[in-house]
């Protein structure tokens, strides 16, 4: 049976883009902001474009934090966080102040430290360096380009970092811990390479 893919709709970001990408891959998806729907999810996608504090506030207002934590941390359903959806799973973020995150991954979200000649936000296609054996990057060619658009990134234990990119210094591009996968770049907007990432993720589900 094909597992159902649930995209969490918490009022932040490019949900349709994420949905369109999965539909393109022939999968049906549910876009939902209901805890009941998430309870039934086999695979959870947390997308997101926007500000950290506002995002946490929305998750709280929708009463989604407990059910998401239950599903991902205890039931261990496959999870993919994208961009802000990756940052939210950290302990905290320094974006516009100090905010607590979902605390699924030890780490905090900090502004990219780069010399002034590197413009922020970091917008555009950048190459990533991938840790050997990373399943998410299977079958990708030499040129591992992905689309990034962000000013903050995840600071966490090196062991869970699966890929990095260079922007005036090393920037975390993706992480994995058990059933938790997360990318700072946007696979749904990274054309052929991005589709491969999503396919690789789905193969694991």
């Amino acid at each position: 049976m094909t597992r159902s893919i649930t995209i969490v709709d918490y009022g932040m970001g490019n949900l349709s883009s994420v949905k369109n990408a999965f539909v393109h891959l022939g999968r049906s998806v549910t876009l939902t902001s209901s805890a009941e729907d998430i309870k039934r999810a086999d695979v959870i996608i947390l997308p997101g474009v926007g500000a950290f504090g506002e995002a946490m506030q929305n998750l709280q207002a929708l009463n989604l934090i407990d059910i998401l934590t239950e599903k991902v941390m205890h039931e261990k359903v496959p999870f993919l966080g994208i961009c802000l959806g990756m940052q939210l799973i950290a302990d905290s973020s320094e974006e516009n102040g100090f905010f607590h995150g979902l605390k699924w991954i030890e780490g905090n979200v900090r502004k990219i430290k780069a010399p002034q000649s590197f413009r922020l936000p970091h917008i555009g296609w950048n190459n990533v360096t991938v840790k050997e054996g990373s399943i998410l990057f299977n079958d990708l060619g030499e040129d591992k380009n992905f689309y990034f658009v962000h000013s903050f990134h995840m600071n966490c234990d090196k062991d869970i970092i699966e890929s990095t990119t260079e922007y005036g210094g090393e920037v975390t591009a993706s992480i994995r811990k058990d059933n938790i996968f997360a990318t700072q770049f946007h696979p749904e907007k990274s054309h052929v390479n991005g589709m491969k990432i999503l396919q690789n993720f789905l193969r694991l589900c």
Binding site: N20, H186, H191
Partner: peptide
């Protein structure tokens, strides 16, 4: 916009 976005797998 929804129609155009369907097949737009680069930033829009």
């Amino acid at each position: 916009i929804a129609l155009y976005a369907e097949e737009c797998f680069v930033p829009f």
